[in-house]
Design a protein around this nucleic acid. Structure first.
Lengths: 215, 215
DNA sequence: ACGCATGTAGTCAAGTTTGACTAGCAAGGG
DNA sequence: CCCTTGCTAGTCAAACTTGACTACATGCGT
């Protein structure tokens, strides 16, 4: 799954009705440009594509109040809502070693109720366990892992990631079970999008890129 | 960086001269179809593209000995070798949280000499440390991390990944320093590609996909 | 009054990835 | 002898991603 659709659906849904630039701003507010491929091109592409596929409804709107080309406002359709929850559930349960997918799931998990979020994360634990078992059984030669030479380090890295990923998930489950955060149907939701005109405290500014990021 | 180019250059280079199907087979042998987007289309595309850019030299060759369309053999040019080592070094030093890039680097690191591999991994440790510092400093609000609500879990996940990634890298450095594996210029290299006609012990077979993998 | 940086909103071409598809040959079974 | 299955080798259209670019308006210093 591409994480863009999940993020875009999540952003549009929280606004009720949003145009591309608003979505773009929300994703920046969430830091998504840091941990996913949320570039303008991808966002506008996803909006158009999902409108074509009936997941979003597009309203043509009068030229913007603040300059620039005419903009389009989008609204999530019923079909889009279904797809949104499908993607969200998948992002929390499936172990595919793509940290961006899980990050998006974490940011949006409060759209579910607490019990379901917990159930999905328990399922995630089981997925990791199964994945680990499949990898160790399949890739361990009869004569022991030493036979693989330095290639064995790749497997070791996977196993290490699976184990630490499971450990972190366990911690998250405990925090949620302990009452942390506000989930759907539990009163005042956490404000996850920027109101119109609100300034973004995490804007990119002229800050250098993180050292260590790929060029 | 896209990991495909690194993998393809590495595979062609170890053969001296290889056609697309051979590369494709090597990547499967390395398990790359499991941990990267090494699909046929991407591989053939990368070969053509890099040939166009002068990183590979393409030899048109008589129709294959075993049926199918005429095939092309590729050889790494001097420019391609430079690019290969550039990508390889980057894959080992840069912390971009894409596990496929590091996996590819691990599989190919023995093309470097031991001292350089160690130096690059030490650099990786520093990159992780810097990245961690930048993230914690930049994303921690004045009133403490609790202010972020559930969004703080995303940051917590990053930090956790950085810390466990550093820990694993430290272990690898120690193993290499302790004399593990055979690096460039240390005699018989580990056999990393399949000889012509050799069967692949890790072939995909009809095995089910790993449970927990994304659909 | 002028120009220049900044913010708003989105487009575009080039490159990359995906998944399904083509096509030839060999082995083996009925 | 024919027919299916599987292996070798690669192509293709559609979708997606990237990074640079356009166009308009506002505010701000000089």
């Amino acid at each position: 799954m591409s994480v863009i659709r999940l993020l875009v659906l999540g952003a549009v849904r929280q606004h009720g009705r949003a145009h591309g630039y608003q979505v773009r701003n929300d994703l920046e507010y969430w830091g998504a440009h840091e941990w996913s491929n949320a570039k303008p091109g991808s966002i506008y592409h996803a909006l158009k594509q999902m409108a074509k596929q009936g997941l979003l409804h597009a309203h043509e709107v009068a030229p913007s109040t603040a300059g620039g080309p005419p903009r389009t406002e989008y609204e999530v359709t019923e079909q889009g809502t279904e797809e949104y929850f499908r993607l969200l559930r998948e992002s929390l349960t499936s172990y595919d070693q793509k940290p961006d997918v899980l990050s998006a799931g974490l940011g949006l998990m409060v759209d579910l109720d607490r019990a379901e979020a917990l159930a999905l994360l328990e399922q995630r634990m089981r997925s990791i366990e199964q994945w680990r078992k499949a990898v160790t059984e399949y890739y361990t030669p009869e004569d022991g892992p030493g036979q693989l030479g330095h290639i064995g380090e790749i497997m070791d890295l996977w196993i290490h990631s699976a184990d630490t990923g499971a450990e972190w998930t366990r911690g998250l489950i405990e925090r949620i079970r302990g009452g942390a955060y506000t989930f759907a149907g539990e009163g005042e939701p956490f404000v996850g999008v920027l109101a119109d005109g609100e300034e973004n405290p995490f804007a990119t500014e002229d800050r250098e890129p993180h050292p260590g990021d790929a060029q």
